[in-house]
Computed example of a mutant assay.
Amino acid sequence: MKAISLFVTGTDTEIGKTFVSCALLQGFCARALRATALKPISTGAQLHNEILHNEDADLLFNASNIVLPLHLSTPYMLRKPAAPHIVAAYEGVSLDIAHIVACHRAAEQLADIVVVEGVGGVCVPLDDMKDTADLAISLQLPVILVVGLRLGCINHALLSAEAISTRGLMLVGWIANIIDPDMEFSTANVEAIQQRLDRKYSAPLLGTIPRIDSQRADEAARYIDIDTLLERMRGLLTL
Results as ranks from 00 to 15, higher is better:
residue 214 S to F: 01
residue 21 S to A: 08
residue 31 R to C: 12
residue 21 S to V: 01
residue 65 N to D: 06
residue 175 I to K: 03
residue 58 D to Q: 10
residue 142 P to W: 06
residue 111 A to C: 07
residue 107 A to N: 11
residue 194 Q to R: 11
residue 196 R to C: 15
residue 66 I to L: 11
residue 177 N to V: 04
residue 42 S to H: 05
residue 60 L to N: 00
residue 78 L to M: 02
residue 26 Q to W: 09
residue 128 D to A: 14
residue 210 P to I: 14
residue 68 L to K: 02
residue 148 G to I: 04
residue 138 S to V: 00
residue 163 A to E: 15
residue 134 D to F: 05
residue 162 E to Q: 14
residue 165 S to Y: 13
residue 59 L to T: 03
residue 170 M to N: 12
residue 44 G to W: 00
residue 211 R to H: 10
residue 170 M to F: 02
residue 76 Y to C: 13
residue 25 L to N: 08
residue 3 A to V: 01
residue 38 L to A: 09
residue 124 V to Q: 12
residue 33 L to H: 03
residue 74 T to E: 15
residue 16 G to E: 02
residue 44 G to P: 00
residue 138 S to L: 00
residue 223 Y to K: 00
residue 18 T to S: 14
residue 176 A to L: 00
residue 30 A to H: 13
residue 177 N to R: 05
residue 22 C to W: 13
residue 147 V to M: 10
residue 151 L to N: 03
residue 4 I to S: 07
residue 16 G to F: 00
residue 76 Y to Q: 13
residue 34 R to N: 05
residue 114 V to H: 06
residue 89 A to F: 01
residue 227 D to V: 10
residue 200 K to V: 15
residue 86 I to E: 04
residue 146 V to H: 06
residue 207 G to C: 03
residue 68 L to H: 04
residue 84 P to C: 11
residue 31 R to D: 09
residue 50 E to G: 07
residue 47 L to R: 09
residue 32 A to N: 13
residue 98 A to G: 11
residue 82 A to R: 03
residue 166 T to A: 15
residue 44 G to T: 01
residue 199 R to K: 14
residue 235 G to A: 07
residue 39 K to L: 01
residue 191 E to H: 08
residue 71 H to A: 14
residue 59 L to Y: 10
residue 1 M to I: 12
residue 197 L to N: 07
residue 192 A to C: 11
residue 94 S to A: 15
residue 140 Q to L: 08
residue 148 G to T: 07
residue 31 R to G: 12
residue 72 L to Y: 09
residue 239 L to A: 01
residue 54 N to P: 02
residue 201 Y to D: 06
residue 138 S to H: 09
residue 156 H to C: 14
residue 177 N to A: 04
residue 29 C to F: 09
residue 118 G to L: 10
residue 41 I to L: 06
residue 145 L to Q: 05
residue 52 L to W: 09
residue 88 A to D: 03
residue 98 A to C: 11
residue 137 I to H: 10
residue 178 I to Y: 08
residue 28 F to Y: 04
residue 105 R to Q: 13
residue 151 L to A: 06
residue 171 L to N: 06
residue 136 A to L: 11
residue 94 S to I: 15
residue 238 T to Y: 05
residue 164 I to R: 04
residue 118 G to T: 12
residue 133 A to E: 08
residue 134 D to Y: 09
residue 207 G to M: 06
residue 71 H to N: 14
residue 128 D to I: 07
residue 3 A to L: 01
